[in-house]
Design a protein around this nucleic acid. Sequence first.
DNA 1: GATATATATCTTAGCCACTAAGAGATTTAG
DNA 2: CTAAATCTCTTAGTGGCTAAGATATATATC
Lengths: 175, 175
Amino acid sequence: MSRAKARAALLGELEEAMRRSSAQGVLYGQAVANVAGIANSDLECMDILYLEGRVTAGRLAEVTGLTTGAITGVVDRLEKAGFVRRERDEADRRKVFITVVPETAKRIGQLYVPMQQAMEKVFSAYTDEELRLLLRFANEGYEGVVAATAALKGLLDTPPEQRPDLKLKKRPRRT
Amino acid sequence: MSRAKARAALLGELEEAMRRSSAQGVLYGQAVANVAGIANSDLECMDILYLEGRVTAGRLAEVTGLTTGAITGVVDRLEKAGFVRRERDEADRRKVFITVVPETAKRIGQLYVPMQQAMEKVFSAYTDEELRLLLRFANEGYEGVVAATAALKGLLDTPPEQRPDLKLKKRPRRT
DNA sequence: GATATATATCTTAGCCACTAAGAGATTTAG
DNA sequence: CTAAATCTCTTAGTGGCTAAGATATATATC
């Protein structure tokens, strides 16, 4: 097998492996939501809140791709469950900041313990050097996916004659 | 900073980076489903069909965590859209195999082109050696996530007194 | 300062995918 | 041959989503 072919095969394997593990990651998320007793999007919003901290309802809609109406429902449920709080922005009273109730953060965090332990075990077999490579890849991969998402959405906006023959109809949903 | 602390920091960064890129991956999936004009779970099932080939309705339910009733709906929609076909198993006539219509596979595959291109660009900066490390990690990571999912579900079945204080109620949903 | 437009969130009606329960068809065990 | 098990589909009901518009507040224009 030529060097180029070997690499192509490697890339193929890599692609499939990442796809599989990513799909499994989604399933883990579903299990977490299920155990926590909240809907999937609710958990997704909790995740965003962890990463970004204090966030407005509008930003949640933007990041999740849900409508603001849907976000109202998400926050209603999370607030009722005691996971988050609404806080009006005093500077601009139209805005509503959503914050995670600290104690609850811990409780939900516990549901990620199995995942953390599993990952710890995996990571333990790697040198610092190797982990840095993985980190580099994770960051570059993230940027790549962001770019790909934008490109895909861009496809919809280019006139049909100029784009590859998709034979798929634009569906009036989301952004 | 001690070596141990450096490593802990590295692990933390890594964890966040992977979480972010995984979340972005979910968003890409949503965008694909949106463009293809099908529901999210429908696309998830298409993905499973790609990976596993000819699959029974029951197995789809098992893998996705949906009920068999829901799968009936998924397959109905996909079949109506011309993406898959139902085929009764002649050996065991209770079973229904779902297969992807080949031509359609290509059409949906096109929606992953932006992602593939982005990943190709990222991968191009890595040596074969490095890619093999990434592959090893992807495979081990997959196994880890599978184990973590099982462990999380196991938490629910252990009596409450013996498990960490979750203060979360078991929700009557899914498996 | 008053009016018009823009922005941010919430409300409502209607839709669609999901669950739970069970029916129908077929296979396997006793 | 009958009973239980297995696999898919059907039905009724529920819940989260979108779309459209209401409400409240902020900003721009005259």
